[in-house]
């Protein structure tokens, strides 16, 4: 068992995975356990960033780049704006629903157990992956050829969503 961990840690990419995973989980756990909302957002940013690192490990540089831009950048900022727009007593009160939280804990652990069991008992024989010379170029080519309709649909969705967000959030008296 120890030797297998030693083997695992002898590989550089494995060490990187280990560190990133640690950060990701740590950020998530902190997000749950912090009491102030701003701290939570900060903790989650760590998770987003370490996930970007994991994407790099998986040879998905463009996705990692987008992850940093959108999640760590845009969404986090959006959340902070949201916090500023709403009044928070900043203190996440102690849960007053013990039964709810106990059942929720059981449910989450149970779901993880099911997923873990499925992962352990599935056989994924990896195929060969050719990342190509330039990941960004390859993705761009695909986006503008094979997935061009989806891409355009996405742009329409984004536009609609943002216009909708503006209309919803704007003041009634305007």
């Amino acid at each position: 068992m120890l030797s297998s961990i030693g083997d695992f840690l002898s590989n550089g990419s494995n060490i990187a995975f280990f560190i990133f995973a640690l950060f990701a989980i740590g950020g998530a756990v902190f997000m749950i356990s912090f009491t102030r909302v701003v701290h939570m957002v900060t903790a989650l940013t760590f998770t987003f960033l370490s996930l970007a690192g994991l994407f790099v490990l998986l040879q998905a540089e463009f996705v990692a780049f987008v992850q940093v831009l959108i999640y760590a950048g845009a969404i986090t900022i959006l959340m902070i704006f949201g916090i500023m727009m709403t009044r928070h007593d900043n203190e996440e009160e102690q849960p007053i629903r013990p039964a709810h939280n106990v059942w929720l804990g059981i449910g989450c652990v149970g779901l993880f157990a099911v997923l873990f069991y499925a992962i352990q008992h599935s056989d994924f024989t990896p195929g060969t992956f050719d990342p190509g010379m330039d990941n960004t170029l390859a993705i761009g080519t695909l986006l503008y050829n094979q997935y061009v309709i989806l891409f355009e649909l996405m742009s329409v969705l984004l536009t609609v969503a943002f216009i909708g967000a503006v209309i919803i959030a704007k003041r009634e008296e305007d």
Partner: peptide, 8 residues
């Protein structure tokens, strides 16, 4: 929560 438990 109910949905989660049901799924489980």
């Amino acid at each position: 929560l109910i949905m989660l438990l049901g799924l489980l």
